[in-house]
Design a binder for these strands. Structure first.
Length: 512
RNA sequence: GCGGCAGUAGUCUAGCUUGGUUAUGACACGAGCUUGCCAAGCUCGCGACGCGGGUUCGAAUCCCGCCUGCCGCACCA
C-alpha cells in the first residue's frame, strides 16, 4: 500500500483539481475511458504543443488530420482486420482464455492461421487440444475483435472501424504527400489524434485506455539511403538500451551506448531509427521526465506488431505501474505502402530524381501516446514535503502560468489586482485570480497545480506601482515594477533569467 | 472475460458483524468577518449511502443482478 502512495495522492489531486477523472461517472462509468478536466486539457495541449515543436517545427514534418472512422478495406490492406481479430477459446474448467492459434501451435506444432472458426473447432476436437494450464475441456471458439466496429451510412451498411492507429491515414495519403514534398527524401508526415482499441480488460487507469490520443510520425526514406541529414547533431547522445537478445536470455542487462555506436555495432538497424530514439529521449527530458527513469526496450520478435521488423519502446519508470511504454519506434519497412499498393492497385513508388529510378519507400515510425507521458509527468512532478505538496512541472508546461492575488480584500487592492490581471491576460498569459482565504492558502492552491509564479498586490503596490512575484519551487519573492511585470514573467517562463535577478529580493518575515 | 475483495459529500472517513431517531468526523469548497505575505481563527452555508431489483412494518446495513475499482489469471498486435 505504501508502495503506491504517491500514485494515490497524485490521482486524488488530479481528480480534485480538475486534471483527469473517469468518464461517464454519473452513469456508473465505463472502464478504459477518462475525461481531461480544465487543467488536464491545458496540460495535455501543452504536451502536444511541445511534440509539435519537435516534429513539425524542428524536423519539418507535415501535419495532416484524417478521419477516425476508416472503411474496412483500408484495415484489411494494413493487416489490422486479420491481426486484430483473435479467435479465442476458454477452458471450461479453469476459465483460462487462449488464442486458439497459439494453443494449437504449442500442442500440435501446426499453424492454423487463416482457418474459419468452424474449421478451427473441428481441428481442436480432432487433435484433442486441451487447456494448457489444467488440461481441462475447451469451450466453443469465439472471436475477440480489438477494433471498434461500426457501420458507415444507412442502407448498404458499409463496415467501418474506429482507427486503431492514426498512421494509416498517412499511408493512404502517400501519393499526395510525396507530391507535396516534391519528391524529396527523406520526408516525414505526422498526425495527432484519437486512436481506439477495445481492450479486453483495461486496468491501470489512464495507462491503458480504450480511446487515447496518439502522436505519430511516419518517416519515408529510400531503403538504400537510411540517413538523417542532421544525424551528426545526435550522434553523441547516450542511449540506455535493453536489447531483445538479453531479454530472451532473461538478462536485465542494459547496454549504454551513443547513438553513433548503436548504429555502427548494428544494435539499432539504421541511422534513422537511432536518430529518433535519441530525439524521443530528448523530448521526454524536455517534458521534465528525469533521464534516469528513461530506457529503450527492444521488442522481441514475438512481441512485435505484424508490420514491424524492429521495434524499440521508450519506457519510463513509474512508482505505480513499473516501466511504462510511452512511445514505440517501429521499422515498418515497405510493409504498409506495398500492401496498399497491392490492395488499391495504385502505384505507391516515388521517382528519385538523383538516383534516376523508382523507389518504394521504407518507413521508420516514432509513435507516441500522449496520455501515458501525461501520467508519468504528474507522478514525476509530484513533490510531497512536510507541509507542502505541489507539482514541480516545467514552467512552460504548467496549465496556469501566473496567479494574481490581492494581499487584502480592501483598501483598493482587489481593484489594482484586477488591473494587473487584465494587463497580463491581454498579453497572452494564462492567469488565475484568487482572493479567497489567507494569502498562504492561495499560494498553496497555486502550488498544488504547478503554477510557477504568483504575483501579489500589497500596500506598496498602491504607493509605488511595484508588486511581489513568488517562485513556486523556492517560495522566495522578488519585487518588480508593474510596467516591467510582463517582460519579467516572460523571461522567467522562458528560463532566460534566474529568479534572483528578476527583481529586488523580498525578505521573508520569518527571516527578519 | 474468469475468481476473490470492495464502493458512504469534491477528498479521506465512522456506521455494516447484530436492519430501527435528523448518517459521524476531518479536510476542501462558498458567503461574511478577520487577516499587512506562505494551508491561522470565528460565524453561517453547500454537500453523500454506485445503479437497479428483492426480503422486511422498516435497508447504508441482509440477498440477487449490473456498473466501477483493487488483487490474481488471461489479454495488451
Amino acid at each position: 500500500m505504501a508502495v503506491a502512495k504517491k500514485h494515490e495522492e497524485v490521482m486524488e489531486l488530479a481528480k480534485r483539481r480538475g486534471f483527469i477523472w473517469p468518464s461517464f461517472e454519473i452513469y456508473g462509468g465505463v472502464a478504459g475511458f477518462y475525461d481531461f478536466g480544465p487543467l488536464g486539457a491545458l496540460l495535455k495541449n501543452k504536451i502536444i504543443q511541445k511534440w509539435r515543436e519537435f516534429y513539425v517545427v524542428r524536423e519539418g514534418f507535415f501535419e495532416i488530420d484524417s478521419p477516425s472512422i476508416v472503411p474496412e478495406e483500408v484495415l484489411r490492406a494494413s493487416g489490422h482486420v486479420d491481426h486484430f481479430v483473435d479467435a479465442m477459446v476458454e477452458c471450461q474448467k479453469c476459465r483460462s482464455a487462449f488464442r486458439v492459434v497459439d494453443l494449437v501451435l504449442e500442442q500440435t506444432g501446426k499453424g492454423i492461421e487463416g482457418m474459419s472458426k468452424e474449421e478451427m473447432d473441428r481441428f481442436v476436437k480432432e487433435h484433442k487440444v486441451r487447456c494448457s494450464d489444467c488440461g481441462g475441456e475447451l469451450g466453443k471458439i469465439f472471436d475477440f475483435n480489438a477494433m471498434f466496429r461500426t457501420a458507415i451510412g444507412p442502407g448498404s451498411q458499409r463496415v467501418g472501424y474506429l482507427r486503431p492507429e492514426t498512421a494509416q491515414g498517412i499511408f493512404i495519403d502517400f501519393k499526395r504527400l510525396q507530391r507535396y514534398a516534391r519528391g524529396k527524401l527523406p520526408f516525414g508526415v505526422v498526425q495527432i489524434g484519437k486512436g481506439y482499441r477495445n481492450e479486453i480488460s483495461p486496468r491501470q487507469g489512464i495507462i491503458r485506455l480504450r480511446e487515447f490520443t496518439m502522436a505519430e510520425a511516419e518517416v519515408f526514406f529510400d531503403p538504400e539511403d537510411p540517413h538523417h541529414p542532421r544525424f551528426s547533431e545526435m550522434a553523441g547522445e547516450q542511449l540506455r538500451l535493453w536489447r531483445a537478445c538479453d531479454q530472451i536470455k532473461d538478462r536485465e542487462q542494459l547496454t549504454e551506448t551513443t547513438v553513433e555506436q548503436a548504429v555502427e555495432r548494428k544494435v539499432v538497424c539504421n541511422e534513422l531509427m537511432a536518430y529518433y530514439l535519441a530525439l524521443t529521449k530528448r523530448f521526454l527530458i524536455d517534458l521534465g521526465i528525469p533521464n534516469g527513469v528513461i530506457r529503450f526496450r527492444e521488442q522481441t520478435p514475438g512481441q512485435r506488431a505484424h508490420y514491424s521488423s524492429e521495434t524499440w519502446d521508450a519506457e519510463v519508470s513509474t512508482e505505480r505501474f513499473g516501466w511504462v511504454e510511452v512511445a514505440g519506434l517501429a521499422y515498418r519497412t515497405d510493409y504498409d505502402l506495398s500492401r496498399h499498393a497491392q490492395f488499391s492497385k495504385e502505384d505507391m513508388t516515388i521517382f528519385s530524381a538523383d538516383k534516376k529510378r523508382k523507389v518504394l519507400c521504407h518507413v521508420v515510425e516514432p509513435s507516441y501516446g500522449i496520455d501515458r507521458p501525461f501520467y508519468c509527468l504528474l507522478e514525476h512532478s509530484y513533490v510531497s514535503e512536510k507541509e507542502r505538496k505541489y507539482l514541480r512541472l516545467k514552467k512552460e508546461l504548467a496549465p496556469i502560468e501566473v496567479g494574481v492575488f490581492p494581499l487584502l480584500n480592501r483598501a483598493g487592492m482587489p481593484e489594482k489586482a484586477r488591473e494587473v490581471l487584465e494587463g497580463l491576460k491581454s498579453r497572452g498569459f494564462m492567469v488565475e485570480y484568487d482572493d479567497a482565504g489567507s494569502i498562504g492558502r492561495r499560494y498553496a492552491r497555486a502550488d498544488e497545480v504547478g503554477t510557477p509564479y504568483c504575483v501579489t498586490i500589497d500596500h506598496r503596490t498602491l504607493e509605488e506601482d511595484t508588486l511581489t512575484v513568488r517562485d513556486r519551487d523556492a517560495t522566495s519573492q522578488v519585487r518588480v515594477k508593474i510596467e516591467e511585470l510582463p517582460r519579467v514573467l516572460r523571461s522567467l517562463l522562458c528560463d532566460e533569467i534566474p529568479f534572483s535577478e528578476a527583481g529586488e529580493p523580498v525578505k521573508k518575515r520569518s527571516e527578519s
